[in-house]
Write a protein that binds this DNA or RNA. Structure first.
Lengths: 122, 122, 122, 122
DNA sequence: GTGGTCTAGACCACA
DNA sequence: GTGGTCTAGACCACA
């Protein structure tokens, strides 16, 4: 479920964070289900437990998971998270559109590739 | 013309690279015009010359500038660079659209914010 | 494995880059095997770590190695690199042949020394 | 006759040296004919006279030209020079062939591109 | 421990 | 004066 790409320039803990975000937002990991323990995931991925720990701390900070003393880490409700994520995506889209405009791209040119990605009949 | 943001998480040399890219792509710095010398820019920005040097090396590697032994650094022709930059922007747009689609966003919702950015009548 | 020639006019970092290219292309250093750390190689060669770092950055840029945050530098797959290198060699051969022709050398004269190098029965 | 390419990474004086070598070896500049004066060539090329001076010194050192006090610089006999140049080219060819062999290239593969360059019927 | 960034300062080739 | 290379040494994020 989690795959580390060592050729990826991003730090390992960040890759883990992003992967869990994705799994949670897409509901693959359902609310209140338990995440693998730090130690077991560290074993599975042949990674330093500190690195997993760091990823979990970050996920908790962002509200993706919550931890229960002595029991483990669990997935949070994701409704708000999905909304937040969508906002982030739209913010990025606006920024990108701004840059595109500044470099003289036509609106049509820019939107064309997006429509293609979504599929003509959306 | 160049401003360093120390709160920015990106390294200084990278901020300098991006700023010059922008100035060159937008033709503020015209082809064959001379850049400030490594030393003078270092003085201006109160930054170590090595850091400026690193930025210039990177800009040369990317084709934005060329340096002449004992004379200085000069702006390259930017036609190709602009095209390349536009392609990069479109690539990013496609990636972003893909992510948006994966998180269940509607095409209209996504495109709306872009059209707003470009201005309704484009 | 790495030897610096101080009489060589090329900069130290470039000698290091070329030597590693050779070791990687010839499979002496196998894919995913770890390179010596910046610090340890600097110690071994009695060279400043910055110089080694510069060589590693260049090797990464050219695709010969990849570095992992906090873990070290590792050898990339070399298949593509070997093909690219062969192309470069052939390009050089063509250029040289062109110069030879321009200076009035006979094809036979030029090819003779090459056949000798490869060995008569190839 | 002399063109400086500022985008060329080689120093200006070196470009001048190489260009004169070529003109002399190809007999465009005939033995005992006079070279432009340092000052006039500097004017023509909009270059610092020191740079031209340096190129001429280097050409004299290599035997391509000789200077007469108060008269100027003149082209040397080029017979020996042509032979020497040819030897240099052959040396380079041998080196290149050696590298090609070390990287596992077949003799035929290497010679093919050379024959193509010379033209099938040589 | 490992790579990444930066400062301070030196020396070199070149124009 | 201009860029290019290198040393010495520091601090940071990451594993």
């Amino acid at each position: 479920m989690i795959v580390i790409d060592y050729r990826d320039r991003r730090p390992i803990y960040e890759q883990i964070v992003e992967r869990f975000q994705e799994l949670i937002l897409k509901n693959v990991l359902e609310p209140d289900s338990q995440l693998p323990s730090v130690r077991s995931l560290a074993m599975d991925l042949s990674i330093n437990p500190n690195t997993i720990q760091r990823a979990y701390v970050e996920l908790e900070r962002q509200g993706y998971i919550y931890s229960v003393q002595g029991k483990g880490s669990f997935v949070s409700e994701n409704e708000r998270l999905v909304l937040k994520k969508k906002e982030e995506i739209l913010d990025e889209a606006v920024k990108l559109a701004k840059v595109a405009r500044e470099f003289g791209m036509k609106k049509e040119e820019f939107i064309r590739v997006i429509i293609d990605e979504f599929g003509e009949v959306s």
